Amino acid sequence: MMAYMNPGPHYSVNALALSGPSVDLMHQAVPYPSAPRKQRRERTTFTRSQLEELEALFAKTQYPDVYAREEVALKINLPESRVQVWFKNRRAKCRQQRQQQKQQQQPPGGQAKARPAKRKAGTSPRPSTDVCPDPLGISDSYSPPLPGPSGSPTTAVATVSIWSPASESPLPEAQRAGLVASGPSLTSAPYAMTYAPASAFCSSPSAYGSPSSYFSGLDPYLSPMVPQLGGPALSPLSGPSVGPSLAQSPTSLSGQSYGAYSPVDSLEFKDPTGTWKFTYNPMDPLDYKDQSAWKFQIL
């Protein structure tokens, strides 16, 4: 009977010793046993002879290597770790002494450095960015050149030099007046198309007034536009458009034309069986010896 009264063996659950049927240790109110408190290391007290050895090595170098620390530790009968900690504390003490010396050398008012006064946003004049500046400075420094007289040679050079070769001289006033084509001369031969040399188009003023001019072949195509416009036809070669000034309004060009419109200028042929003959000019830059190549039959 006494065997049943004795408590059973101890069981360990999660490293906790349980005594038989008792489960009081598993209750929430019972805390787990805490780790033992780490003991504080005792402070090391250095003797005068030990301090002399350490100070002598510190005077040589503030960062001794492990071999120098072990050698000193053997002399003063201390572990190497204590020597390492002593050098660490000695360097910190040396830095603190240097900072105190710097503070003593500075004057009393030198510690508080005078800061520059901050400028207020409204006091300083700042350039306004509302208006974009002129990058080319046209509004201040540029002045347009004065327009020359209508009959000045410089204007003629600016007008005619675009179309004339570089080897030719500017046309005088008398020749510029001949550039304007007359109405009857352009409409006299509506079906004849003559190819003149390129030099005649640039230099010869008579080429624009003769039936064999460069633009005589364009007349049949330009004249039928007159009834559609409801007024006189516009002429690209009329009046002052080739003269001194090219800047004319469309209203000033509306009254200039080749001449009176005639039914002869239409595109319809009077004789459907007729042929169109292209007159060959020996001055043509295209060297075609066979003139029969310039004739064709309209079917």
Rank of each mutant, 00 (worst) to 15 (best):
P64T: 12
L218W: 09
A156V: 13
R82I: 06
D134V: 07
K289M: 04
W294K: 00
L246C: 02
R98Y: 03
F87A: 14
S210P: 09
E55G: 09
Q248R: 10
S161L: 14
T251L: 07
M283K: 15
Y67G: 03
T61Y: 09
D284G: 14
P224Q: 03
R82V: 08
Q228G: 07
N281T: 15
L78V: 10
F201C: 00
M2I: 09
H27R: 09
M193Q: 00
A192C: 07
S204L: 11
K120S: 05
G8E: 00
S252W: 14
R91K: 12
P36V: 03
S22E: 00
L54E: 13
T187C: 11
S262K: 12
S150Q: 03
A200F: 13
G148E: 05
Q248Y: 10
P145W: 10
P64D: 13
L57M: 11
G217T: 09
D134W: 08
T273I: 06
A198K: 05
M5Q: 00
V242S: 02
R126I: 04
Q297N: 00
S245T: 11
P224L: 10
D219R: 15
D290H: 15
E173R: 14
F296P: 00
S204F: 15
L267K: 05
S164N: 02
A196M: 11
Y4H: 01
P125E: 03
C94N: 06
M5R: 03
V72M: 09
S249C: 03
K102G: 01
S128P: 10
Y280Q: 00
P107I: 05
P33C: 10
G151A: 04
Y280A: 00
D140S: 03
S12F: 12
S210C: 11
G110M: 02
P127R: 08
S49E: 10
T155Q: 06
T154M: 10
C202L: 12
L218T: 00
K88S: 14
S22V: 10
L171E: 09
V131W: 06
M2F: 11
V226M: 06
T275Y: 11
S292A: 06
S182Y: 14
L229P: 02
S139E: 02
Y214Q: 02
M26H: 04
S238I: 15
P240V: 13
G8T: 03
K277W: 12
R95V: 14
N77D: 10
Q96C: 05
Y32P: 02
Q96E: 10
A200P: 05
K277R: 10
S254D: 01
L78H: 05
K289E: 05
R43W: 13
A196H: 07
A158I: 11
R98P: 08
F46K: 13
T187F: 15
P153C: 11
M5H: 00
I138R: 06
S241R: 12
G151Y: 07
W294H: 00
P147H: 06
K93D: 15
N14E: 02
T47D: 14
G239K: 08
V83H: 15
K289H: 03
A59V: 05
K88R: 15
P149I: 07
Y63S: 15
D65G: 12
P232Q: 05
D140I: 14
P244H: 07
S188W: 09
Q106L: 15
S292M: 11
T159A: 06
L237F: 08
K118V: 02
E53M: 10
S164M: 15
L16Q: 00
A56R: 08
E52N: 05
A156G: 06
P250F: 13
R119A: 02
P285T: 09
A198S: 07
A174M: 09
P227C: 14
P172L: 13
R43T: 15
A189H: 03
A59W: 01
G178A: 05
S81M: 04
P227L: 15
K38Q: 15
A68F: 08
P7G: 04
G209A: 10
D130N: 05
S213F: 14
K277L: 15
C202T: 01
Q50D: 14
P144A: 05
R126N: 03
L267T: 01
R95Q: 11
P220C: 13
P9M: 07
P165Q: 01
M2L: 11
R82F: 15
L146D: 07
K88T: 12
D290M: 14
Q50H: 07
Y142K: 10
K102I: 01
M225S: 01
P190L: 13
V83N: 13
Q256H: 05
P220F: 15
D271C: 15
P108D: 05
P285L: 14
Q291V: 12
P9N: 00
Q106M: 08
Y4E: 00
V13E: 00
R176Y: 06
Y221T: 01
A92K: 14
Q62C: 05
W163F: 02
D284Q: 13
L146Y: 07
P31F: 15
S124G: 11
Q99N: 04
L171C: 05
Y11R: 03
V83Q: 13
P285S: 07
E70I: 08
L74N: 06
T273E: 02
G230M: 12
E53T: 12
Q28M: 14
G209C: 04
P133F: 04
G137Q: 07
S81W: 11
A3Q: 01
R69H: 13
D130F: 07
Y258H: 02
S254Y: 07
K277G: 00
C132T: 09
P184M: 12
R91S: 14
V242L: 07
N14A: 12
K102C: 04
P7Q: 01
